[in-house]
Nucleic acid binder design. Structure first.
Lengths: 351, 351
DNA sequence: CTGAAAGCGCTTACAG
DNA sequence: CTGAAAGCGCTTACAG
């Protein structure tokens, strides 16, 4: 019975229900002052005609699109696709459709695309996920066009409503885990300078050492760039030194993967000779032998919190907390174990 | 000078240019019959007023959105983000904005989201990427609402315009590569039954063996489910047998990762004792020791071809080729080498 | 080559 | 509680 060629309008429904089209509009939008009987009649007419509102017409007059744009770097998707689904759900619950726009900081194409989206007011609001915020362009553009904006765990701090991840305490926890296993010589692979995550994760590492009365030795801190290459090169430098670490906290999973690769190339056993851990809990972390111990900053949960924040902003709700912090979680796999000397002690029959 | 509050309309521009708003409309849409002088005046007025067309108004009357939706599974993104950028570019060139919609086959939420998108005619056309086509719902819905649709390398064959990947010839090539290196006992980890890719990749493997006069032994063909778990379990079964393979062609990178993991757990050296290769060229392939040899089916290129096809369909161009096939590419890394016996021969001083 | 009219499908005030 | 009017910003015919 349904006409799928967009021919069904609010007027057709009104005719079927025997009322004015204004009444249909009221029912659609859940406005008050409609008798129950009228309401039921219109509902039935909508079903019978297969009516679907024309969003363009609605947008033209309301100046709202009920669409929210999430700026993402290609990586985020694979990290927590279940969480992502929940975010989409949450958006739908509040009447918003989410669009995921790939955005590469400072890239011409990304900027052009975003410009169109923003200038044409195609989106009611934006969520910026890391590292898209490293390019000021996005924030500037969005605020210039007076569009609400929420940031997720930005690389650089900004004056925007924001949901933060717990980099420092996550790093502190996993470092403490290594110390508890018996490690004393723990190397740290630093991230690129200028990134908040770099500083925070280093701070967590440092804090854990100090809390356990261990020295913070600059020799154990190597640049790792949060990248595969960086992690690999760092290991090559570390194992050229006279004193070698028994554990490496890589600061990021990518660097940890590089470290793991380099260690295997050097025929150093993990975790037998050296323990390795990372940060981020990328999906790969569980698939690389012997399983990478790491810290999870659940991207999906951060996103969901950001979405809720944005929805409240869009609803003009007087928002008390525009800065939230979500906890990190330890994910322990096979790449961390007691250091060789402790293992030997444990193996020996003499207590 | 620009008013960013959407107040600038076609009429404001007309006033600034000293013409009727219809003339402005002509200039915006590149219609003919406008004097060069008038054209320039309007262009200047647009710049001066900072006019940006209201897409909702335009859509209301044209019934077009100039938006194309790409149904993707979270994985695709990370596989070829550079290629993805090119696709977005190509879309923009033709006046289309691309939206990437996460879609999980048969999932309630995905279906609801898609229904809204389709029923409300928010998208001019759809591109379905694997494995989103495994759920007939998407295709059925989209065609029911008479929206153009192009498939990318579908898991199941359908009667739709389509861009195909070369699974069989890719599989044949990499198997031939193993044979050329001296392998004779090559195991194959099959994909899930019913998937076109499974059948095609197996066919390529078989064809390569036959082309080189090698027997196709069912004992060497193990289910691997195209998954990490599947690959891992398959290796455990294979290495419980009396006759062991010298090479494993995993049929998918995920299965190859699982195989690699299991081999390392068994302390079998790759490629020293066993060579391993995969299919897909996931980003992980280069980051897992010793680098996974695999076959690349460039997702970005397939997508770009699909986009072009869809654009032509939308432009009602009489399309000659609605079925394209794109070649696969061998990507050789450290996980494949000659088998142990050949290595020994090569090492020995006697030629 | 340029313009005045009509209308896309809806919502926002404003009457009854 | 219900409805007739006006208008959102644009394009599509149709006159000049």
């Amino acid at each position: 019975m349904r006409n799928l060629n967009m021919a069904v309008t609010i007027r057709d429904v009104a005719r079927a229900a025997g009322c004015s089209f204004k009444t249909v509009s009221r029912v659609i939008n859940g406005e008050p002052y409609v008798t129950d009987e009228m309401y039921a009649r219109v509902k039935a007419a909508i079903l019978k005609t297969g009516y679907i509102p024309n969003v363009s017409a609605r947008r033209l007059v309301t100046k709202q699109t009920n669409m929210i744009c999430v700026l993402i770097t290609p990586g985020l998707y694979q990290q927590d696709s279940a969480g992502l689904g929940r975010v989409i759900d949450a958006g739908a619950e509040h009447g918003y459709t989410l669009f995921f726009q790939p955005y590469v900081p400072a890239q011409r194409r990304s900027r052009d695309q975003l410009f169109d989206l923003v200038a044409q007011h195609i989106m009611d609001g934006f969520i910026i996920t890391p590292p898209c915020d490293t390019d000021d362009f996005a924030q500037d553009l969005i605020t210039t066009y007076k569009t609400p904006l929420v940031q997720v765990d930005p690389v650089q701090a900004g004056p925007f409503p924001c949901v933060w991840g717990s980099h420092a305490s996550g790093a502190q926890e996993i470092t403490a885990h290594l110390i508890a296993a018996g490690h004393q010589r723990i190397a740290f692979l630093e991230g690129p300078p200028g990134l908040r995550a770099s500083a925070e994760r280093l701070a967590g590492y440092t804090r854990a050492l100090q809390a356990h009365g261990l020295p913070v030795d600059p020799e154990w801190i190597e640049p790792g760039e949060f990248s595969f290459e960086g992690g690999s090169l760092a290991v090559q430098r570390l194992f050229n030194k006279a004193r070698r670490p028994t554990a490496i906290f890589a600061g990021s999973d990518m660097a940890a993967l590089g470290a793991l690769f380099a260690l295997q190339a050097l025929e150093i056993r993990v975790p037998g000779q050296v323990s390795v851990c990372g940060f981020d809990d990328l999906p790969v972390a569980g698939m690389v032998y012997p399983g990478l111990s790491t810290v999870s900053l659940p991207a999906g949960e951060l996103l969901a919190a950001a979405l809720l924040l944005l929805v409240r902003l869009l609803q003009q709700a007087p928002e008390l907390e525009t800065q939230l912090t979500l906890p990190a979680r330890l994910v322990l796999r096979g790449s961390t174990a007691p250091p060789p000397d402790v293992q030997r002690e444990a193996d020996s029959p003499v207590r």
